[in-house]
Computed example of a mutant assay.
Amino acid sequence: MRCVGTVVRGIRTPIIKENDDLATIVVDSLMQAKEAEGFEFRDKDVVAITEAVVGISEGNYVTVDDIAKDLQDKFPSKKIGVVNPIMSRNRFSIALKGIARGMDKITFLTSFPADEVGNGILDEDVLEQSKYHLGSVISEEEYAETFGSWIHPFTGINMIDFYRELIESEDCEVEFVFSNNVKTILDYTKDVLTCDIHTRDKTTKMLAAEGANVYGLHQILTEPVDGSGYNPDYGLLGSNKATEEKLKLFPNTGDVLVREVQKRLIDLTGKQIEVMVYGDGAFKDPVGKIWELADPVVSPAHTDGLVGTPNEIKLKYVSDNKFADLKGDELKEAIKEEIKEKDADLVGQMITEGTTPRRLTDLIGSLCDLTSGSGDKGTPVVFIQGYFDNLAND
C-alpha cells in the first residue's frame, strides 16, 4: 500500500540569464535531481517553471523611456488620470516612472482603504472614526490631514508619499484623489490609463462608455517600441522591476517552452508529463490581508493535460453520511470503491461539497509559488508527483 500522496520538490537550476537555452536547463536540472534524489518519473507528473526565468531567458525587457514613448503616442495631451494601480515598488514603481517621464501632469486616483490586491494606504481604524466612508471622495489635502502619517507595517513606508516623490522626480505634476468609484476620474480628465489587474476589462469598457480616451496598463507595450520587449496579451501587467530604468515583462514564449520541455521529457522517460509556466499564486495572506495574485493570470502557458478543474468527492462527507456505520479497514475499502465508481463529472452533487472548485492551473500554480518562494531558494522549477492521485490509487 502506498503511504505517500502528493510530493513536491523545488528543483535547483543554474542562475538563468538572457538568451539561455531554458528548455535544456530545465530538462538537465530535472535529470540531475532524479539521479541525486533517486526518484522515478511517472505519468501525470507536473513540471512547473516560474514566469520570471522565462521572461529573463527570452530577454523580454522594456525601459522607462520605452514606456514614456508609448504613453505619449496614446495620450498626446500629456495630462492623464492614472486609475487604481497597485501599491507596490516592485510591481508598479518603474512603470509609474515611465508614465511620469512621458506626461506633464498625472491625476492619480486610488481606491481606499487598500488597493485591488489588499495593500493598505491608510489606517482603517482612523477611517471608521472619521467623517469619511467608502463612498467618499477624499482630496489629497484631506488625506494628508487625516491619514497622512500612516506607515505600512510591512514596508515601513507611506506609498502615497513614495509615489508622489517618484512622479515629481520626473518633473511631472501630480494630484492624488481617493475614491472607490473609478468614474470619479472623469471629473478631472477624459484621458485615462486604468491600472487595475483583475477588473481591467470592466473598468476600461465602463470609462470608454462615458466618453473617455482610455487605455489599460494591459494595452501599453503590446508591441515593441524601438526594438523593446513587449507582451501582446498583457502589456505591462505582470511586469517586475529589473533595474531603476528597466522592467521585465510577463513572458511571450511560454507556450513554445512548455511543449518543448514536455516533448523532451516524454522522449527521455516514456511518461506523459505535463508542463506549465506559473507566476503569482492565488492566495491571500491572513495577517497583511494581501491577495498574492498581482499577475494577470496564475499560469500564462500550460500543456493540455492541465486544462480543467478537480473532480473529487469529499472524504469527510462520505465517511460521516453514507458510511457512518463503518470503521477502520472496512471504511477505507468502502471509500476507495466509492472513488473508483464516481461520476466523470460531479459538478452540482452534494458529495463534492467542500472541495475546491478552481482551475487546476490556479491550484497547482499556487502550490508552486509557495514552494519556490520569491527570494533566495534558487528553485525556479517545481516538480510535482501524485497530484492527480487519490486514495484509490495503490
Rank of each mutant, 00 (worst) to 15 (best):
F154Q: 14
K205T: 12
M276S: 05
T379W: 02
N119F: 15
E210I: 04
Y215H: 14
M206S: 12
M103W: 08
D66N: 15
E40Q: 12
K322H: 13
H302D: 05
E175G: 06
A212S: 07
I351M: 07
V382D: 00
A144P: 01
V82E: 07
D233M: 06
M276T: 05
R259Q: 15
L71G: 02
L122A: 03
R164T: 15
A392Y: 02
A392N: 08
D28W: 01
D73C: 10
G216Y: 00
D389M: 11
D28R: 11
V174W: 01
D104S: 12
L22C: 03
Q32T: 14
K327S: 15
D233A: 12
G211H: 02
N321D: 12
V177Y: 02
A212G: 01
L346H: 04
I384Y: 00
K69P: 02
L391F: 10
Q349I: 08
V382I: 15
V214T: 14
L363D: 04
V126S: 13
K263F: 11
K69L: 14
C195A: 15
K34Y: 06
I49C: 03
E116M: 08
P113W: 04
I56M: 13
P310Q: 09
L71Y: 03
L249Q: 01
A23Q: 06
Y234N: 03
L306C: 06
T204V: 15
E274D: 13
G308R: 09
Y132F: 15
G378F: 04
G386D: 00
S179A: 15
L367W: 00
K377Q: 08
L257V: 03
V277T: 12
E128M: 11
G55K: 01
G386T: 01
V177C: 06
L370W: 02
F162S: 14
Y143K: 04
V26C: 02
W150I: 05
G348T: 07
E165Q: 14
H133Y: 12
L22F: 01
G373H: 05
V177R: 10
Q32F: 11
E330Y: 07
V26H: 01
L331A: 05
V277Y: 00
G227H: 02
T222E: 11
Q72H: 07
M159I: 14
N180Q: 02
G270W: 01
T194R: 01
T194K: 03
L221P: 01
G375I: 07
E173N: 11
K202R: 13
K248H: 10
G365A: 05
N180W: 00
D104Y: 04
L236T: 02
G135F: 11
P113M: 05
F323C: 07
V297A: 04
I197D: 00
